[in-house]
């Protein structure tokens, strides 16, 4: 799965936690989950758990704390997918 494909799925994971759905259209790799997408920090763990289910991976707490921007999220998911397939 390439980064673009990961992003497409990631948007589905994030959507329930974004009140203004128009923000999804403007997502770039530099987008910050909290400051740009206005996701409440209390939902960050939900996003990690939902991402685990979406990509069939496991994300440990150390990796989860790095999921601050879209780029960070894709990096973590890409790494976990790679580990799962190796």
């Amino acid at each position: 799965m390439d980064r673009q494909a990961i992003l497409v799925e990631l948007k589905k994971v994030l959507a329930p936690y974004i009140k203004n759905k128009e923000l999804l259209d403007g997502i770039t790799e530099n987008t910050n989950l909290i400051t740009d997408l206005k996701i409440n920090s209390a939902n960050l763990v939900d996003i990690v758990i939902d991402a685990e289910a979406q990509y069939n991976i496991e994300i440990d707490a150390d990796s989860a704390e790095n999921m601050v921007t879209i780029q960070n999220c894709i990096d973590v998911i890409e790494e976990k997918l790679s580990s799962a397939n190796s």
Binding site: N40, A42, V45, D46, V48, I49, E52, E58, A61, A64
Partner: peptide, 21 residues
């Protein structure tokens, strides 16, 4: 602040969830 209305007791009970916190 945490609003209980937006929290999920079933999810809180899952180790994969609470082990992140």
């Amino acid at each position: 602040v945490v609003a209980f209305r937006l929290t999920d007791p079933e999810r809180s009970a899952q180790p994969r969830f609470y082990n992140q916190i």
